[in-house]
Every structure is written in C-alpha cells, then in structure tokens.
Simulated scan of single mutants.
Amino acid sequence: MNPVSALLGRGPEGLPPPAPLDFGSLVLPRSPNAALAAPPGHPVAARAHLPSPIYPVPAERLFETLLVLVDGFPRCHRLGAWPERHQAQWVERTRWMNFPDLVWAEAVPLPEGSGLLLLSRSLFGWSDLGVNRARAARWLEALEVAVR
C-alpha cells in the first residue's frame, strides 16, 4: 500500500487488497484507533470495546441486510465479501480529511438468532478521537433498526 495514494484516493483506491478477517485470532492494536464489537457470550466478547445486540434473525438474513444497509452509507465502499463466512469488508473515508478506515463485519449464528462481529480501524495515526467506536455503534444501531 502506498500511503500517499491511500490518502489521496477515492473509495478503494490505493488500499491493500481485501482479505477476510479471522476474528478468533484477532490481535487488537495497542493504539486507540480501533473498535471491536461482539455479541454477549461470543468468545471474542471479552476483548470487545462494545456489545453487539442479538438479532432475532438467522445469520444469513442478517448478513444480507447488512450488505444492503452499508452499501447505502455515504463515503462507504465495499472492498470484498465472503458469503460462505457471512463476512464483508468496507472502507469508509472520513468526511473532512478523506482518511480511509477499514471495517470488517461477520454475522454469526447464535442460539437466540444471530450476532455481529464488527471491527473498525484506522489505517493511519495513533488515535482516532473515538471515530471508529462511534462508527461501530452507528452501524449496530442502523442494523438493529433495519432488522426489526
């Protein structure tokens, strides 16, 4: 990845190729520029920065709803999707400085329905001033409204 082209690019321009994320082996950065959300009881929930709701729909439907919802968000571009994993990756560019933040989301089956694992992280800088946590909360709220 060329940092200059990543900062000057639009949408996915200048970014590394998309790749699925293994949430189970995820090591969070030491920097405060990432936010992880997970449903209660999920193995990664102990490391999460915020809880993800339990949605009363199967993981397949949650994933399909998520794709349609996020593809409509401003400054957000899908980089890749892995339907067999119910996972996708996006870039959302910040409004004022065009910084690219990467977001992965994976719908996981739960006994009561499904949950969402979500990681939002900055590619540049040490601190994001809470932008990724706010984004994760906004995505979770919008998905909950869309599902119900």
Results as ranks from 00 to 15, higher is better:
A136C: 12
R148E: 11
S122C: 11
E112S: 12
Y55D: 00
F23M: 07
P43Q: 11
P12Q: 03
P83T: 04
P111K: 06
A6Q: 06
W90S: 10
H42P: 04
P100M: 09
P17F: 07
A6K: 11
L102T: 01
E144P: 00
R138S: 12
P3V: 14
L123A: 04
A81V: 13
V147G: 03
G24W: 06
S25C: 01
V68M: 05
P53K: 05
P20I: 10
F73K: 05
T65S: 07
P17R: 15
L66K: 05
W104P: 00
A134L: 11
G80D: 05
A107D: 03
A105S: 12
R121I: 02
R148A: 01
R138Q: 12
P53E: 08
P16S: 14
N2H: 07
G11K: 07
H49G: 15
V91L: 03
Q89V: 11
F99P: 00
G9H: 07
Q89W: 00
E60I: 13
A19R: 13
R95C: 10
V44W: 01
P111D: 09
W139D: 09
P83A: 06
A35E: 03
R47P: 02
E106Q: 15
P20G: 11
F63C: 08
V70E: 08
T94H: 02
N33H: 11
A59K: 08
L8T: 15
G24L: 14
R133V: 05
D22G: 02
A38F: 02
A107C: 08
L66V: 12
S25N: 14
W82C: 09
H86R: 15
R135W: 01
V103T: 15
G130I: 13
M1D: 10
P56C: 09
R93L: 04
Q89E: 15
I54N: 01
S5K: 12
R121K: 14
R61Q: 15
W104T: 09
P56L: 09
A136I: 12
A45S: 15
L50M: 10
L8P: 00
P111S: 07
R95E: 13
E64H: 14
P56N: 09
L116F: 07
G115I: 02
